[in-house]
Structures are given as C-alpha cells and as structure tokens.
Nucleic acid binder design. Structure first.
Length: 481
RNA sequence: GGCCUCGUCGCCAAGUGGUAAGGCAGAGCUCUGCAAAAGCUCCAUCACCAGUUCGAAUCUGGUCGAGGCCUCCA
C-alpha cells in the first residue's frame, strides 16, 4: 500500500505522487515571532515533524522548509510597546521558539528561512505581479487585484459574493476592491523599512511565504502545510501570489492540521485561553505532550485538558515500563540467531496506518499491541530458557523503538524516563525519597519477622500519602499512585 | 447572514459500504503473605428520524447539538 494524503484543495484523500519520484519538497508556515508559542503551535509543529519523519522513513528524499515570519504588524506593535527594535523582539522569540521545539524533540527542518532575508525576492514578486496586471501600486502600498486571479478562493471553497456579504470587511482607502490584499506596505513612523520601487516600506503578510518557498523549493513543490486557520486568507493569498507570478502550479498537496481546543473552544491568542508550551512543560514531560498530540489524528480537533494530559502520561508510561521489562528480561542472554517475524508484522501494520493520511493514532494503537505482546512473552514461565521467545521479545523491542523514532517517541532511556517522572511527581507530595526508603526498610524488617499486620500498616500509610510499594524478587521499589 | 467541519463505550480515540481498533477507568480470574505490575476474560451498534442498498457508524435527505472560517491566528 502506498501513501495517501488528504488534500484540502480537493477535499479528499489522494494517492501521494511527488512531482519528482523519490523526492519531496515540503513547506510549512511557521510562526510570527512576537510571543511565546502555545500548545496549538506545538501541535502544528509536532504534526509536521512526524510527517517529515515519516516521509523520510518511507524513503523520500525530503526537503522540509519551515519559516519564521519576523516582520509583521504584531511584531512592530509589541516591540514599540516595549521600546525595543522589532528585530530584537523577533530574535528573542525566534530563540524562544527554537528552545521550545528542541524541548519537544522536533527534528530540525532542512531550511528555516526568515522573511527579512528575502526582501529582494519579495520585491521581485511584487514587480512581476504589477507587470502582469495582477497587482497595483497605490500611495506607496502594493495590492493584489484578486478579481484578476480566477482561481482565487478555490482552496477555501468560497466565492467573492458571499465574502463581501460578510459585514466585517472594511474598505481600505487605497484599495480598488475591498477584497484586495497588501503585498507591500508603505513605511509608517517607527517601523522597520526597506527601499523599494514604490518607496520605503515593508512586506505585507503572505508574500514572504511565496518568496521563501519558491526560493528554496522552486515555483512548484509537493506539500504545503499549516494550521486550518491559515486556509483563508493566508494560503489562498499565497496561491494567488505564487501562481500569479510564476504561471505554474504552486503546491500539489495542501495539508492542514486541526485545532487544539480548550473546553471545546479553539485556543487562540485573541480568546486568551491559551497555554504556552513552557507553562505546560513545567508540569508534563515533553514526550507526554507529543504522545497526547499524536494519539489523535492530525486533522481532528483535540481538547486540551489536565485530565487528557494525565491519561497520556499513563499511556506513555506503559510503553516505558514494557520497554524496561523487555530490556531486563533478555539481559545477559546470548543471541541465538533465531528469527522472529513479529517485528516485521508490527511494522507492516504501522506503515499501513501511517500511509493512510498519517494516522498516528492508529499507528500507536498497533504499537500498544506490540507492548502487550512483549509483556505476554516476558511473563511466560521459564521465559529465559526459551530461545524463540527471547528472540521475539528482542525483535519486538527493537521494532517498537525503531518505529517510535518515526513518531519521535520512546527514545529516552526507560529507567531514566520513569525515574524522572517519579521524582517530578514526588516533588508535589509532602514526602521525601529518603523517608520512603526508611519506611521500606522498616517494612522489610516486619516482613522478615512475619509481622504482616505491621507490614500492611506501613504499605497503607504510604498509599494514603500517594506512594505505592512494589515487591519483587529483587526487593521493594516504589512508585507514585 | 454565507460557507465548512464534526457528533462512536464513563473518559480519550481509530474506523468513511460488509457487520465496531487501541488507551484510561471498571468487573472477574491468574500471580502475590497481602498488594502492585503483567497476563487472561468481560465491558458500545455508532446524536435522532427517514431513505438508498442484499448489507450503513460509513451514502442521501431532514432534525437536534457542538465547533470553525468569513478580522490577527498553528
């Protein structure tokens, strides 16, 4: 089975066939750097991170471009509020973005261009559009003449009449048509500016993506991605600009991720109901956040809540506990060369899921079955003496790790990951590790004395305080309840 | 007002024509001094109504409900 992707342009899943066999060019709209990223940004970036990883895993030579929009009204406003140059503000938030994405374990894109590095290209596109009659200069601004581009609104499936019927469109003084959008804006006081044939100014929003994508991927490329909220106007305008200027088809497949909701409502800056990535990482491990996001399909909305994150943490722990168990179970047993087909079977199911429009939720479900399989095998009587089972566990463990890598999951050391989780949780309880160890010692003595009443008393007291004891052959350990 | 999504077990969540994945929670059992973990078993007919079909959660129409876009937004 080969890869199928849902294309917003056609509204359905299509067979994925790159323009050049074996190669993929992918452009994803990055962030406008004027504030810290919230969980919605985390989702978009994680989603395209796994799409990138899976394309490479599938053998495509993939070029992934994700930009920074570092010149924009909001950046300028925020910088002026703080009394610092907008370039400085942008730099600060680019750094913050990079830190957040690194924390979330994102692979670095092939290119991470900044809008301000492409001013020449932006001016060139404006000029071509004006020459073709698709744009016009007006009082130092340059606007796109949308009614000259007949494919306008094809992506968002609207029409001009209903758009104009909407009461919220305000007529710009300089525009021929209220629907026209700015390619270039004349500089106002306290704004960064660049010289252009239309006077000093700066790019409008949208044009930078056309400039960067064509510079790095060519006029036509395979995948263009971003959040749903970018479909209109951002992506619609990009198409108009890029295809208008080049005369060639722009992106072949349009992929859009769904929103992160809070209480069934879209999380957004304007609603003020957002949680920043840094805030969330105070409480949850970055991999838990990633796991949470990937247990839903990328196009579905997901509801962000403490409960959902906690559930994801439990689910991810199951993986690490199983990986730890498997590691211990086969430790020290010599390799026999016995073959196992379990890993290959798991990989087939994983690929089928991911090939179906990157269904990471289903892929993870398959991996959960791999976990159950591993646990079952390890729990078999005289497991260590059964070379075929040992080979199967080794195979499954290696496969879960390898496929997990494609999702950016399970790549921590299990023991360390579980330890970290334990001690992070412990910090919120009013009990120390030393005290727990002391209680374990006391209980051990009681058990040696066969004083089970005392032993159970200690256990129950700890449970009251949120600590659960685990007895095993190797002794007693503890975990958070 | 226009356009577009979505509505699956207590919770999260796959499944878009062939008879409901997975996780969490829950019940029983095995294991355990007792527990925990792990394993095994059990646990939904898919908002509602009507239709198409041999057959529908999946297609069509309608009803109700939720959300999104139309303004900055991942």
């Amino acid at each position: 089975m080969s890869l199928r992707v849902y294309n917003t342009m056609s509204g359905k899943k299509e067979e994925f066939q790159p323009l050049t066999p074996g190669k993929v060019g992918m452009y994803v709209c990055g962030v406008t750097v004027y504030d810290y990223c919230h969980i919605g940004h985390a989702r978009a970036n994680i989603v395209f991170d796994i799409i990138y990883r899976y394309l490479k895993f599938s053998g495509f030579d993939t070029t992934y471009v994700r930009n920074y929009t570092d010149v924009d009204d909001k950046i300028i406003n925020r910088a002026n509020e703080r009394g610092i140059p907008s370039k400085e503000l942008a730099e600060d938030f680019i750094r913050a973005f990079d830190e957040d994405m690194a924390a979330l374990g994102l692979a670095k894109p092939t290119h991470e261009p900044r809008a301000t590095e492409y001013i020449d290209k932006i001016i060139e596109i404006c000029r071509i559009l004006i020459d073709k009659g698709l744009a016009y200069a007006s009082a130092g601004d340059v606007y796109y003449r949308v009614d000259k581009f007949d494919r306008y609104l094809q992506l968002s499936k609207r029409n001009m009449e209903e758009m104009q019927a909407g009461a919220r469109i305000t007529t710009g003084e300089q525009k021929e048509n209220p629907m026209d959008f700015a390619l270039w804006k004349a500089a106002k006081p306290n704004e960064p500016l660049w010289e252009s044939p239309w006077g000093a100014g700066r790019p409008g929003w949208h044009i930078e993506c056309s400039a960067m994508s064509s510079s790095l991927l060519g006029d036509s490329f395979d995948i263009h991605g971003g959040g749903r909220d970018l479909i209109f106007p951002h992506h619609e305008n990009e198409i108009a600009q890029s295809e208008g200027a080049s005369g060639k088809p722009f992106a072949k497949y349009w992929l859009h991720n769904g929103f992160v909701n809070v209480n069934q409502e879209k999380m957004s800056k304007s609603l003020g109901n957002f949680f920043t990535i840094r805030d969330i990482l105070q409480t949850y491990d970055p991999e838990v956040v990633r796991f949470f996001i990937l247990t839903a399909h990328y196009r579905s909305p997901i509801d962000f809540s403490d409960q959902n994150l906690a559930d994801s943490q439990t689910g991810l722990s199951r993986f690490y506990e199983a990986l730890q168990l498997a590691e211990d179970a086969v430790d020290g047993i010599t390799e026999t060369g016995i073959k196992s087909s379990l890993g290959a079977e798991l990989e087939t199911r994983f690929r089928e899921a991911m090939d179906d429009d990157f269904n990471s939720a289903l892929a993870i479900a398959h991996l959960f079955e791999g976990v159950r399989n591993m646990n079952r095998l390890c729990a078999t009587k005289k497991f260590r003496k059964k070379a075929d089972l040992v080979a199967q566990v080794r195979d499954l463990r290696a496969t879960v790790l390898r496929l997990g890598e494609v999702l950016g999951l399970y790549n921590s050391n299990p023991a360390q990951w579980l330890e970290k989780l334990k001690f992070t949780g412990l910090a919120k309880l009013e009990i120390s590790a030393e005290e727990i160890e002391a209680q374990i010692e006391a209980r051990k003595q009681a058990r040696t004395d066969k004083d089970f009443a005392r032993s159970d008393e200690i256990r129950d007291a700890l449970i009251e305080r949120g600590i659960e004891l685990l007895d095993s052959q190797q002794g007693t350990t503890w975990k958070l309840k």
